[in-house]
C-alpha cells in the first residue's frame, strides 16, 4: 500500500483523537443500546425501549413546533399553550427517566452506519 494515504490533513481539530474517540463512543453506544431481555430485567428493558420511542417522538414534535413558531405560523396564545405542553412533556420524561433509572444516553439506539437515532 502507498505509504501515505492521507493527502490533506491541515485542520485544527485533533483528528486522531477525534476519530478514535468517536469510534469508541459509537461502539460503546452500540453495546449499550442493545436490548438484553432476561426474566430479571424485563420491566426495565421494555421501559427503556418504550421511553426511547417516546423521547424520539417528543423531540420530533418539539422540532416541528419550533419550525412553526419560527415560521410565524402561531399566535401568541398558541405559542403560550405550546410552551406549556412542551415543558410539561419534558418534565414528565425527566420523571420517567428518574423512575426507571435511565439517562439520556440510555434513550438512544445506535443504527450502525446510519449513526445514532437521536
Amino acid at each position: 500500500m502507498e505509504n501515505n494515504k492521507i493527502l490533506c490533513n491541515t485542520g485544527t481539530v485533533d483528528l486522531s483523537i477525534q476519530d478514535i474517540t468517536g469510534e469508541i463512543e459509537r461502539i460503546e453506544k452500540a453495546a449499550d443500546s442493545k436490548l438484553s431481555l432476561t426474566p430479571e430485567n424485563a420491566d426495565s428493558s421494555i421501559a427503556k425501549l418504550v421511553l426511547t420511542l417516546v423521547e424520539l417522538i417528543r423531540k420530533l414534535v418539539e422540532k416541528q413546533a419550533m419550525r412553526r413558531v419560527d415560521g410565524g405560523l402561531l399566535t401568541e396564545d398558541e405559542i403560550e399553550r405550546l410552551g406549556e405542553t412542551l415543558m410539561k412533556l419534558e418534565l414528565k420524561m425527566e420523571e420517567l427517566k428518574k423512575y426507571f433509572n435511565l439517562t439520556d444516553r440510555d434513550l438512544n439506539i445506535n443504527l450502525g452506519p446510519l449513526g445514532d437515532l437521536m
Partner: peptide
Amino acid sequence: RLSFVLTG
C-alpha cells in the same frame, strides 16, 4: 474552523 482529511 473545520478540519478536512482527504485520503486516497
